[in-house]
Design a protein around this nucleic acid. Structure first.
Lengths: 229, 229
DNA sequence: GCAAAAGTGTTTTGTCTACACCCATGA
DNA sequence: TCATGGGTGTAGACAAAACACTTTTGC
């Protein structure tokens, strides 16, 4: 019985918390839920849960994301382990934070109501339980770093999107405005988009061509070092 | 008694493991120890320990580093939480890995013997217990990323060093060779070094001037975005 | 005087930035 | 025909990369 080897050691509660980002076309938002149990019941919170004995930490995060969104195959990345002794007044809990990117339209109104969830613009995050605000801050920073060198922005956009949507996304992530021509030149030079014949006629009379992210083309690149911005 | 709130949840063993890097003048090395307890007693391992109930995860890492090196005030950074169910055959243990940089000369032979420790070049790491090899791999990668934008290399060099030592360090980190003139120009343009009057006469007849890292000058810069390479 | 490492500039190349007008279409 | 967003090119600034010879000094 191998566990006996470590029987003298303290055991801790281990949680996961998920920072879920979505993009509306104008701004980046985070998905928050009302906490329905003590302590701090009734306050806004990240979606989280405890890691079980027979479950890996990543599996716990996937499970929690699935519970809230009904989605599988979500872009998800481990962010940081928050391990302060006093971070949760309900007990000694260490929490591994994950950040996830979803296509905001995939998230149904029903699920939202069911979980008492809401989307909040990143600069209008309400008071949150524990250290969750720090988690969001760190996630935002990590998103910037990551999006600069890896094509993760596509996880936030619909399957087909216009170049202006893509640019708007990067502008939201970097909280800046970009020159249209320079941006498009840069993206095209990476050669990871495929232009469709179809146009989006929603937002202009002329219509803007849709593009899709071409995973095959991307996979041919050296995955570690493409430079978006 | 607030802990009762979460009493239904599983509790896990939580460990920390430290990847300790040092630099000899030619190559980057990692400090490993012989594991003296079961399971896998006798194999090489990272230095680690369990997180206690009343200790933060970072504090546990600092404690473990202090035990092995006798040093305080070590550069240390959280790397990643390894949470697979089967990663440790001795039980369900999740491990938060940290990477640390030390000046290799600060680490005494006596401590080394006492802990059955040894320095290993990064491309000659022996078989290690559990997932420790993955931890080193990830740490190496993180060191590259971090050193490109933050002046952490100084934590690996003696207080005073020559420009060739500094260049040698970056060459070791990036596993490449750099042009001497371009490198020096770049470093000088960052304006974070102070030249001493003293010369190192060990490695040449002419002698090379010593420099020190000037933390004051560095602190005046925008800490998030300097570009080394 | 010679071997061995230290120190020092210039040119070329490529990348990033700033900038403004015509196009296509539906109403 | 006009209002709206879509689409396109060029010139200048700046940073990165390539490249070789002279200096110092202990032996």
């Amino acid at each position: 019985m191998p566990t006996a080897l470590y029987s003298q050691q303290d055991r801790l509660l281990v949680a996961v918390d998920c920072i879920i980002f979505g993009f509306t076309g104008n701004e980046l938002k985070a998905l928050l839920v009302k906490r329905l149990f003590e302590p701090e019941s009734g306050k806004w919170s990240l979606m989280g849960g405890f890691v079980k004995e027979n479950e890996s930490v990543e599996a716990a995060a996937t499970r929690v994301l699935g519970q809230l969104t009904g989605l599988t195959d979500i872009y998800m990345e481990q962010l940081f382990c928050f391990g302060d002794v006093q971070r949760d007044p309900g007990g000694r809990v260490i929490s591994v934070a994950f950040f996830a990117l979803i296509k905001i339209d995939d998230y149904s109104e029903e699920l939202m109501a069911e979980h008492y969830a809401g989307w909040f613009p990143l600069n209008k995050i309400p008071a949150l339980v524990f250290d969750h605000k720090n988690m969001i801050k760190l996630a935002k920073q990590r998103l910037k770093e990551k999006a600069a060198t890896h094509p993760i922005g596509f996880a936030l956009l619909p399957r087909k999107f216009t170049l202006q949507q893509l640019q708007g996304l990067y502008e939201a992530i970097y909280e800046t405005s970009l020159d249209k021509r320079n941006f498009i030149r840069k993206i095209h030079s990476l050669n990871i988009l495929r232009k469709l014949d179809e146009k989006d006629k929603e937002s202009s009379r002329k219509g803007a061509f849709y593009y899709v992210f071409d995973r095959d083309k991307y996979n041919q690149l050296d995955k570690e070092a493409i430079q978006f911005l």
